[in-house]
Amino acid sequence: MELFGIGLTLIVLFVSFGFMVGVLFGFFGMGGSFLVTPALLVMGYPARVAVGSGMAFVFGTAVIATLKHHDLGQVDYKLGGLMIVGTSVGIEVGRIGVFYLEELGLASGVIGVTYVVLLGAIGVFVTRNALKSDGDDDSGGHHDAANDEIDPDAIPDIAKKIQSYRVPPMMTIAGGIQVSLWMVLAVAFATGLLSGFLGVGGGFIRMPAMFYLIGVPVPVAVGTDLFEIVFSGGIGSFLYGMEGGVDLSIVAPLLAGSALGARIGSAATGIVNEGDIKIYFGLMLLGGSVAVAFRQAGDYLGMEVLSTVSFALILLSAFLVSGAVIYSTIKTMRAESKTAATVAD
C-alpha cells in the first residue's frame, strides 16, 4: 500500500524514527537531527536529498521548539538577527561545497567521514563527562539547564581569553553584556558552514560556542539558538529545495513523529535527572559514529551487509536511548507517587 508516493511500511518507519528523535531532542535539547541525515544516507538516499530533507526536518522541529520557548523570553532578537546573517553565508558556502563534492562523486564519502569524526568526538566527550561526573552533572545540552547558575571557573581559560578580545564594533546583548560584532559573525558563519555541509541545525556547536566564545548567558544562548535554527533551517531547506534536495514524503512523517516525541521528551525533563541518562546519549552518538563508519566501509568494500548493520545500529541506538528516557520517566513518576502515598499515611 502506498501513500503520497511511499510505502506504508516506510511511513510507519519514519513516524517511529521521528518519534524517537523527538523524544531525544525534547529531552536533551540537541542531537536529534544528527541521527536523521546519517539514517537517510544509510537508507540509500542521495547525499543532497539526505542533507536537504534532514535540514527541512530540523526547520520544522525548530519551529515547534521555538513556539514552546517563545513565552520564556529567552530570545535576543538583535543577536539572533546578526547570527542569521553570518549563518546564511556559512550555509551557502557549505551547500556549494556539498554540490561540488557531489559532482566529483565524493559527497557521500566526505560527509560520512565528517559525521564519523564529529559524532565520535562528541560521543567520547559526552560519555567521558558523564562518567567523570557520575551522573550528577546537569550542564550542557539541556534546555532546562538554561536556568542554572554557571560557575565562572567552569569556563576554560582559552574561552576567557577569546572573550577578552574586544574587537570593535562592540554591541550590547541581553543582560547588558558587551560583545564583539566580529566574534558574533565568525561563530555564526562557522556553525552555518556546518549546517549547510551536514544538514544539521548546528545547535550542538552554536549553543556552547555562543556561551564560551561570545560570552552570551546560557538562557539567552539557548533561546536565540532556537530562533536562529528556524531561519537557518528555513533558508537551508529553501536552497536545497531549489535543487530538488527536499523530499516532503520523508520530512512530513518524520515531523509528525518528532512533534509528539518532543512533547514527551520535554515533559520528561521536569521528572528525570538528565545526568542519569547522559551516558546513554554519549553512547548513542558513538553508536551513530560506528554506524556511519560501517556504511562507509560497506560502500568501499562492496559489502551490502555492512550497510544493513549500520542502519540497524542507528535505529537501535535511537530506540534504546529514547526508551531509557521513557522508562526512567515512568519509573520516577511511580516512585514519587509511592513516596507521596507513604508520607500521606
Binding site: V63, I64, K68, S237, L239, Y240, V251, L255
Partner: peptide, 21 residues
C-alpha cells in the same frame, strides 16, 4: 519555478509544524 517550488515546500513544512504544535 525552482524558487517557487522550494517556497511551497518550506511553507508546507512550516504549516505542518504549526498544525502539529
Amino acid at each position: 519555478s525552482p524558487a517557487a517550488q522550494a517556497g511551497v515546500l518550506v511553507g508546507a513544512v512550516l504549516v505542518e509544524a504549526i498544525v502539529l504544535y
